[in-house]
Measured scan of single mutants.
Amino acid sequence: SIKEIEKEEIIKVLKEVNFNKKLASEILGIPLRTLYKRLKEYGI
């Protein structure tokens, strides 16, 4: 599903940037606030 793909992509990017959420949100092209929402939604 799209949610699974998105979750995997978020985890992959977070690992690449050593869990720097600000940098991860910039790489993913989403606002930091949205990233936090996704992390909560996906239980990351």
Rank of each mutant, 00 (worst) to 15 (best):
G29N: 09
K12D: 04
K21F: 15
K21I: 15
K37G: 05
I10T: 09
L39V: 04
E16H: 12
E4H: 10
I44K: 05
N20T: 02
G29T: 03
V13R: 03
K12I: 05
I44M: 09
I27A: 07
I30L: 08
I2F: 08
L32P: 04
I30E: 01
E4V: 11
L35M: 04
L28I: 05
I27N: 03
S25T: 04
I10P: 00
V13S: 02
K12G: 06
I10F: 09
I10V: 07
V13I: 12
S25L: 02
L14G: 00
K15F: 11
E6H: 10
L35W: 02
P31F: 03
K21A: 14
K15S: 09
E16S: 15
T34P: 02
L14V: 03
K7A: 08
A24E: 00
I2A: 13
A24V: 05
I44Q: 05
Y36H: 09
E6L: 11
L32W: 05
K12Y: 06
I2E: 14
K12T: 08
K15C: 09
I2S: 13
N20K: 04
L23V: 08
Y42W: 14
I2D: 14
I5A: 15
Y36V: 15
K15G: 07
V13L: 08
N20Q: 04
K22R: 13
I2H: 13
R33C: 09
Y42K: 02
L23W: 07
K21N: 08
L32S: 02
N20A: 04
E6Q: 11
L28F: 03
I44N: 04
E6C: 08
E6N: 11
T34W: 07
P31D: 14
R38W: 15
I30Q: 01
L39N: 01
L14S: 01
R33Q: 12
N20H: 06
S25E: 01
K22V: 12
G29H: 06
I11G: 03
N18S: 10
I10L: 13
K15R: 14
L14N: 00
E26F: 13
R33A: 14
P31H: 07
K22L: 12
P31Y: 03
L14E: 00
V17Y: 06
K21P: 12
E9H: 14
S25H: 03
K22T: 08
L32G: 02
K15D: 04
N20R: 05
R38I: 15
I27W: 06
K40L: 13
K12V: 05
R33G: 10
K37R: 13
Y42S: 03
Y36G: 04
P31A: 11
N18K: 11
K22I: 12
E9D: 10
E6W: 07
E8M: 14
I27Q: 07
G29R: 07
E41L: 09
L14I: 04
E9I: 14
K3I: 11
L28Q: 00
I10E: 01
I44A: 05
L32D: 01
L28N: 00
T34I: 13
E26G: 07
P31Q: 06
L39E: 01
E26R: 13
T34F: 07
S1Y: 03
I5W: 14
K7E: 05
E9W: 15
K7P: 06
L28V: 02
Y36M: 15
V17C: 07
R33I: 10
L14C: 03
V17N: 08
V17E: 02
I30A: 01
Y42R: 02
G29K: 08
V17G: 02
L39M: 15
I5K: 14
T34R: 06
E4K: 08
G43N: 10
L35Q: 00
E6S: 14
L35N: 00
R38G: 02
S1I: 11
G43S: 07
S25R: 02
K22H: 10
